[in-house]
Amino acid sequence: MNRGIKTVATTAFCCLVALTGCNKQQQTMDMGSSYKTMTVKTDSRVLKSLYSATIQGRQDVEIYPQVGGTLQKLCVQEGDRVKKGQTLFIIDQVPYQAALNTAEANLKAAEAAEATANLTFKSTQKLFEQKVVSDFDLQKSENSLLSAKAAVAQAKAQVVNARNNLSYTVVKSPADGVVGQLPYRQGTLVGSSMPQPLTTVSDNSELYVYFSVNENDLLNMTRQYGSLEEAAKKMPPVKLILNDGSVLPDSGHVESISGVINTSTGTAQVRAAFPNTSNMLHSGANGNVEVPVFYKDVIVIPQAATFELQDKVLVYKVVDGKAQSANIEVAPNNNGTEYIVTNGLSVGDVIIAEGAGLVREGTPVGTATQANATQGETQKQDK
């Protein structure tokens, strides 16, 4: 009987000790889990924004013939680099040479008629002075001379026109550049009204890169630089990422920013100029423009300190030792590891810096130092 009482007492004591240990462990956990925290402060960052871009030659000139005829000769090949004034095509010159010869002959005939009319007028004038002919005859002779002079002027104009038409049969490049596609071959009948040009000469020494920015970007530029004109003058150099992912060695500069927003797209066009010293740029190509964006005295937090819920970005503030969620607004561009907070946090706020997605509302939060101290006190009480 005594042995049974002792066994029961021993068992009860062990249960009491175990229960006390569990209570102490639970009390330790309740006193605050250890989370890495940070105090919000301001800093400066330089981030990069990417914009889809199209590349165009500084001067893309579509070459149309000014006269019609059979294409006799192609003097260039696709992709050739040409100089201003270099011959590109020759159109059949025979009819235009004949027209010039006819015009020159007509001019000579008109000049001969003028000379005859001039002699007649001088002779009539002398006869009039001798009162052999009447004033009517003198006026008639003078009018004939004036008509002959007008015929000469008209013939000269026809010669100029015929000579120009003949010169137009030799189609020359209006600028330095690279020859584009050649859709027409020798023997094709061409003219000024055809739907497709003979070719396009693109000046690739320096190319324009066009990209679009939204309304918020325009507002940010205006706030930062004072006006869009000043933004175009003072914006830092920009980089061009080519279609294969490589970066153009030469930097470009923004030349103009359109102040008109396209109502259908909600964007405004920006033009940047890039030198083509490496000959890697081609008119009609695509790429991405990398624009540096400067942020000064802004709140910067790690992305690990945030979590998303229904398209909203949230953080956990530490308020009175407990986690309290807070909505924040962040800048649209980031460096992949940090966010720039535009609204929702103030300097001096304490937030959980890591693992925010694992925290729950109202969770007790203690620093690593607080947790170690709590554990030491618990160990002393156990002893």
Rank of each mutant, 00 (worst) to 15 (best):
H253T: 07
A326K: 14
I299Q: 02
V313E: 14
F294H: 11
T265G: 09
G357P: 08
T277K: 14
D320C: 04
I328Y: 05
Y316R: 06
P292W: 15
V291P: 01
V330E: 01
M235I: 03
T263A: 15
T277N: 14
P249N: 05
V347P: 01
N279L: 07
G259M: 00
V350L: 10
M235D: 00
G344F: 14
R360T: 13
K296H: 11
L240N: 01
N288H: 11
G252T: 01
P332T: 02
A323C: 04
R360A: 09
A273Y: 02
P275T: 07
R360Q: 15
S258C: 07
K239E: 13
L309A: 06
E255V: 12
N243E: 12
I261T: 00
N334K: 00
G348M: 06
I340R: 11
G357H: 12
L242I: 13
E255L: 13
T337Y: 15
P292K: 02
S258K: 00
M235T: 04
R271F: 03
N243W: 01
S346I: 04
V238I: 13
A356L: 05
N288V: 06
V289A: 05
G355Q: 02
D244S: 08
L240T: 00
N243G: 05
T267H: 03
H282L: 11
Y316V: 08
A268V: 00
I257P: 03
V247F: 09
E329D: 10
G252D: 05
T267V: 04
Y316A: 10
D244Y: 03
K296F: 05
T337N: 14
I352E: 00
H253K: 09
V319N: 10
A273D: 13
L281A: 11
F274R: 03
V319D: 08
